[in-house]
Simulated assay, not measured.
Amino acid sequence: MAETPDWSGLFPELLQTIARKLPDISDFVNFRAVCTVWRSSAHVSDLPPQLPWLLEERGSLEGDLRFYSLFSGKIHTVPFPNSSGNSFCGPAHDSIVLYNKTTHQISLLNPIADKKVVLPSLSLDIAWTNPIQVGPDPIWRGDSVVLSGIFVGYKTGFVALYQPIEKEWMVIERNISPNFRDTYYNGLYFLNKEYIGTTEIINTVTQKMVHVVPPPPKEENCECCAYLTYVAWRSTYLVQSAGNILRVVLHTLESLETYKTHFHIHRLDLGGENEGKPCWVKISSIGDRILFLDNKNGFSLSCRDFSGFRGNSIYFLNKYSHGFALPLYSICRYDIEEARVEPLTCPFANGGTWIVPSLR
């Protein structure tokens, strides 16, 4: 009978090399669970960049969380701790943002590592809020936590920034607008007003509006305008991608039998190709970047970190809604160069939101 090899005898350098090449966080966790030697050789900081997981849409915080791994195609179930009194604002990067309407406290919960960070109270009468940015390490690296939302009464909105250096929230009130999309980058807050198409840029230090960018020219030969036999709708996203602000517009055409989806992408030129004024410039490629879009927000990653995944593409949730039936969702990949949609497997018919799994 052959002897069972002593896997704990592998050189630590070899173990570290193996750990850093594990593309799925569940494999990394299982690797560290083999024995004490393997655990000590694979530090949490050795976790390679991770593809997002899809967090199943949920109406409450009760019950377990379910995630779908785009890489492995597996569903992971994570117990959710008791969060009485908290409401679910949404995920941002690797955290779930919780808001307690009684104490006005904002918490960041990493559901994978089961770690919770409590931020100072945000003493506002908030009817609804959505996380825009939570950096990879908002406590130790000084990354801002940025939320936007609407006050009770739905008359005005706000953007709130928490920076660990000041250890307090800065709140900027803004006019409310239906179907808005927003993002934050490098001290600037970008707010797209869908119903008129303009994008406001607010300096969060001075709290003053510095630019109002007009919408890009209407697309020529746009099928959404050409076919009245279709039910057509669009969704606009503002996405920070490798230092650029992108305006990504998803067009969907629905007939009784088919769906057609395509994207228009523009990059914000602050220098101004339009007589020195900021403007949107149409682009046909985003290089090696991959965009991930859900129903509200979007972010980008580099395909160089993920073997087998191509850049210049968009992963998004496609909504199917015939008649008065409840909408169903699927994950799709859009090839920007070929303007082609590729349906993928999605186990959550009611949709979800993207979250980057982390052990920090």
Rank of each mutant, 00 (worst) to 15 (best):
Leu109Val: 05
Gly271Arg: 12
Ile245Met: 11
Arg174His: 09
Thr183Ile: 03
Asp94His: 12
Ala226Tyr: 04
Ser121Asp: 01
Thr206Asp: 01
Ala127Lys: 10
Leu317Pro: 01
Leu359Arg: 01
Ser307Tyr: 06
Leu256Arg: 15
Phe190Cys: 11
Gly308Tyr: 09
Thr198Val: 14
Trp169Ser: 14
Thr353Met: 10
Leu147Lys: 14
Leu55Met: 11
Glu257Gln: 13
Thr229Val: 04
Ile314Thr: 01
Val117Gly: 02
Tyr237Glu: 00
Leu14Lys: 13
Ser313Tyr: 09
Asn130Arg: 15
His251Pro: 07
Thr102Leu: 06
Ile196Pro: 01
Glu13Phe: 03
Glu220Gln: 10
Ser321Pro: 02
Thr345Trp: 13
Trp38His: 08
Asp64Arg: 02
Arg247Leu: 15
Val117Thr: 10
Asp27Val: 02
Val239Thr: 05
Arg141Asn: 10
Arg58Phe: 04
Ile18Ala: 03
Asp125Gln: 13
Ser285Asp: 04
Ile132Trp: 12
Arg181Met: 07
His104Met: 02
Leu109Phe: 15
His104Ser: 12
Gly197Ala: 11
Val118Asn: 14
Gly157Ser: 14
Phe31Asn: 10
Leu147Gln: 05
Lys155Gln: 14
Ser307Leu: 14
Val239Ile: 08
Thr156Trp: 06
Pro136Gly: 00
Met1Tyr: 10
Glu57Gln: 10
Phe306Ser: 02
Val205Gly: 14
Val171Thr: 09
Asp6Ala: 04
Ser148Pro: 04
Val159Cys: 14
Leu253Phe: 04
His211Val: 03
Val118Met: 08
Thr206Cys: 12
Phe263His: 08
Leu317Phe: 02
His76Trp: 04
Asn221His: 07
Gly9Pro: 00
Trp169Glu: 02
Ile290Glu: 01
Ile25Thr: 00
Lys218Glu: 15
Asn350Cys: 06
Thr36Trp: 00
Leu328Trp: 12
Glu220Ala: 10
Ser302His: 05
Glu220His: 06
